[in-house]
Computed example of a mutant assay.
Amino acid sequence: MPETSPTVVVLTALHVEYDAMRAHIEDAEELVHDDGTRVERGHLRGTPWTVAIAELGEGAVNAAALTMRIVSWLRPEALLFVGVAGGLKDDVEIGDVVVGTKVYAVQGGKQTPSGFLARPEVWHGSHRLVQAARSALRDLEGVRGHRKPIACGDVVLADDRSAFAEYIGRTYNDAYAIETEGSGAAHAAHLSGRLDTLVIRGISDRADPGKPAADASGSQERAAAQAASVAVAVLRKQRPRGTGDSEEGPHRGPRYGEPRYGEPRYGGDHLDFRWSSFHGPFVAKRVDRGDEGR
């Protein structure tokens, strides 16, 4: 696979989420980091994207650590966390998809004699990817999507009348879904620098005592498949940086002399010494366009 192809990393926590994304990847090859971390890397048909997918396991701390490792290893242009979540609103149904305009880390705070004072952290979804999601959801049939905040904490919520559920509803009233890894991935992506990031979650339960029955009915498989279809639709809309934002027309690689994906473009006269080796003096000569080929 060409090393110059722009890369997007898609992270998952569960095998059912991984399998849903893996179904969209062609010509996949397994890559193994020196520390044993594994990804599968392949091509997303009809796009210029190389997609690397990984199953990280559960929990925000684990997600943060492995996200940092994978990002520093593969140097992607974009990162998606795709999986399942519990729904927090009455108008969110099993099988819906929530695209995270914001991701809250919900467990930070200070316990005082007068009560718990929340000190949340929040990461916003990449404007470029949120906009692509808005466009993708308008065109995507069979998916009911919401562009709303997502709450993240190391608690699997299966009781909508619990003190924790009441706290989420009071303090993060705009959150439409709750899950356990998004804040870790979002934080790691933020620390890595300029990286477009988005959390996409399919609703597999209502974060209530009906969760075990919903899971047993196959709701996780359905929700994961819906989330994966939205992730793919977003990537079909979103072009790599420097190639234009339109999804229309076939992708064409850079012409001779143009920078590869993700590289800076230069204006005016300059000498480009990248990937060059010199073993003695050299002479530079300017060639006008009309003299080329003479």
Score class of each variant (00 low, 15 high):
177 A>H: 08
17 E>G: 06
253 G>H: 13
17 E>D: 13
38 R>V: 14
230 V>Y: 11
67 T>I: 07
138 R>W: 01
161 R>L: 10
243 T>K: 11
96 D>P: 02
268 G>W: 13
71 V>L: 04
42 G>E: 08
135 S>F: 01
219 S>K: 09
106 V>P: 01
270 H>D: 05
242 G>Y: 10
171 T>M: 08
100 G>Y: 00
10 V>Q: 04
29 E>F: 00
69 R>P: 00
164 F>H: 13
42 G>R: 09
30 E>G: 01
236 R>V: 00
133 A>V: 04
134 R>T: 10
195 L>G: 02
90 D>T: 14
163 A>I: 00
153 G>H: 10
198 L>G: 00
19 D>I: 03
98 V>H: 05
87 G>C: 09
234 V>L: 07
167 Y>V: 02
142 G>F: 15
172 Y>M: 04
279 H>G: 09
29 E>K: 13
176 Y>Q: 09
194 R>D: 15
239 R>E: 06
224 A>S: 11
228 A>H: 06
49 W>D: 05
5 S>L: 09
81 F>K: 01
139 D>V: 00
57 G>C: 09
236 R>A: 00
165 A>C: 02
263 E>G: 02
106 V>T: 15
267 G>Y: 07
7 T>S: 07
243 T>M: 06
144 R>S: 11
205 D>A: 07
282 F>I: 15
106 V>F: 02
86 G>H: 09
41 R>S: 15
125 G>E: 04
284 A>G: 07
211 K>G: 04
234 V>S: 02
164 F>G: 00
285 K>M: 10
78 A>F: 01
102 K>H: 15
114 S>A: 15
161 R>A: 12
58 E>W: 07
146 H>Y: 04
230 V>P: 09
147 R>H: 14
252 R>Y: 11
259 P>F: 08
70 I>W: 05
106 V>L: 13
133 A>Y: 02
146 H>I: 03
156 V>K: 02
114 S>H: 12
253 G>Y: 13
259 P>W: 10
259 P>H: 08
244 G>R: 10
108 G>F: 13
168 I>F: 03
284 A>N: 05
262 G>V: 10
52 A>E: 05
168 I>K: 05
87 G>W: 06
202 G>A: 04
222 R>F: 10
142 G>W: 14
115 G>R: 07
97 V>A: 05
